[in-house]
Computed example of a mutant assay.
Amino acid sequence: MWTSLRRRLDRARLRDPAFAFLFEPPPPDEAVALDCETTGLDPRRDEIVAVAAIRIRGDRILTSESLRATVRSDRPSSPEAIKVHRLLNAEIREAEPLDAVLPALLRFIGGRPIVGYYTEFDVRMLDKSVRRQLGIRLPNPRIDVSSLYHAAKYRDAPDYVKIDLSFARILEDLGLPALPQHDAFNDALMTAMIYLQLRDLLARRVAIRREAAGPVETVAFGA
C-alpha cells in the first residue's frame, strides 16, 4: 500500500516527463543486474566511480545488452578504496560525471526491477544524482540476492546457526565461477548468475543445505 502511494507521489513530483517510463511496467520477465563501485561506504560522503548494468530476460543473461561506465568523482579515492576498485584517481578525474552518465543508465534500466547484492546501497548512491535531476528517488522494484540466498539457506535456521551472506560464500554454495571482484561489470554479471540460480531453487522449493561446504547441495523445504 505504502509503496503504491509513494510511486504515485513520485510520479507526480517527476521534474522531467521524458523519464515517465521509469513508472511504466517493464517488459515481461526482464530485470537489470546493477553494480556500482564507490570511493567508500558512506552514502552521504562517498561517490560512485564506476557503474555497470546487464539485462536479464527470462533465464538468459544478456551480456550483449549491457552498459558500463567509469564515473568522475570530485572526492579522491583513498588508497584502500583504490586497492578494491583498481581505478586510479587520474582515470576517475578524466571520466564523465554521474549526472552526465545517469540519463543513459536510466533509459537502459527503464521500469525493470533492479537486481543487486545489498541493492539498497547502490540505489542510495544513484539516488543522489536522481534527486538532483528528477526530484525523485528511483522507483524501480529491488531484488537483493543476499535476501534470496538467506531464504534458500537460512529460512528456518535456529538462533545458534552462524549466518554467512558474503558474496564469496554465495558463489561457493551455488558452484558459480568467482570472477575478479570489484569490477562493476564482473560483479553485475556474477549477481545476475546468482539471481537466476536462486530464483530457480526457490521456485522449485529447494533449499541449500546449511552444512554444504562446496557446490550446492540441496534439500526440499521442510525435509
Rank of each mutant, 00 (worst) to 15 (best):
residue 137 R to S: 13
residue 157 A to K: 05
residue 106 L to E: 06
residue 176 L to S: 02
residue 220 A to T: 02
residue 38 T to P: 03
residue 130 V to R: 01
residue 16 D to K: 14
residue 60 R to Y: 02
residue 112 R to G: 04
residue 186 N to R: 00
residue 155 R to N: 06
residue 61 I to F: 04
residue 4 S to F: 04
residue 183 D to T: 01
residue 97 P to I: 02
residue 174 L to E: 08
residue 96 E to G: 00
residue 124 R to A: 15
residue 90 A to W: 12
residue 32 V to E: 05
residue 106 L to A: 09
residue 99 D to C: 05
residue 128 K to C: 01
residue 193 M to S: 12
residue 202 L to I: 10
residue 49 V to T: 14
residue 108 F to E: 02
residue 136 I to W: 14
residue 144 D to K: 07
residue 23 F to C: 09
residue 103 P to T: 05
residue 97 P to K: 11
residue 118 Y to S: 11
residue 29 D to R: 13
residue 223 A to Y: 10
residue 103 P to I: 07
residue 85 H to T: 01
residue 64 S to E: 12
residue 177 P to N: 05
residue 152 A to V: 13
residue 91 E to A: 14
residue 2 W to E: 13
residue 12 A to D: 01
residue 44 R to M: 05
residue 2 W to N: 00
residue 222 G to K: 02
residue 162 K to F: 11
residue 176 L to V: 11
residue 91 E to M: 14
residue 43 P to V: 12
residue 160 Y to E: 14
residue 35 D to K: 01
residue 179 L to F: 06
residue 185 F to N: 04
residue 99 D to T: 08
residue 86 R to H: 15
residue 210 R to K: 11
residue 179 L to D: 00
residue 181 Q to S: 06
residue 57 R to A: 15
residue 195 Y to K: 03
residue 169 R to Y: 10
residue 102 L to A: 10
residue 203 A to K: 15
residue 154 Y to E: 09
residue 119 T to E: 13
residue 147 S to Y: 10
residue 133 Q to K: 09
residue 112 R to S: 12
residue 110 G to Y: 09
residue 117 Y to S: 09
residue 78 S to M: 07
residue 118 Y to D: 11
residue 133 Q to M: 14
residue 133 Q to F: 01
residue 130 V to P: 03
residue 144 D to W: 13
residue 15 R to E: 00
residue 17 P to C: 10
residue 91 E to V: 07
residue 107 R to P: 03
residue 192 A to C: 08
residue 143 I to Y: 08
residue 218 T to C: 07
residue 211 E to R: 13
residue 140 N to M: 08
residue 26 P to I: 09
residue 197 Q to I: 07
residue 92 I to L: 08
residue 146 S to G: 08
residue 18 A to C: 05
residue 208 I to L: 15
residue 187 D to C: 01
residue 188 A to K: 00
residue 11 R to E: 04
residue 103 P to F: 05
residue 125 M to G: 03
residue 28 P to A: 15
residue 183 D to N: 15
residue 158 P to A: 02
residue 34 L to H: 06
residue 73 S to Q: 04
residue 222 G to T: 06
residue 117 Y to A: 03
residue 212 A to V: 06
residue 154 Y to N: 05
residue 155 R to A: 14
residue 9 L to V: 03
residue 2 W to F: 09
residue 130 V to W: 08
residue 53 A to L: 10
residue 169 R to F: 08
residue 31 A to G: 09
residue 62 L to E: 14
residue 120 E to K: 14
residue 41 L to I: 11
residue 109 I to M: 11
residue 188 A to H: 01
residue 199 R to V: 03
residue 219 V to E: 07
residue 173 D to P: 01
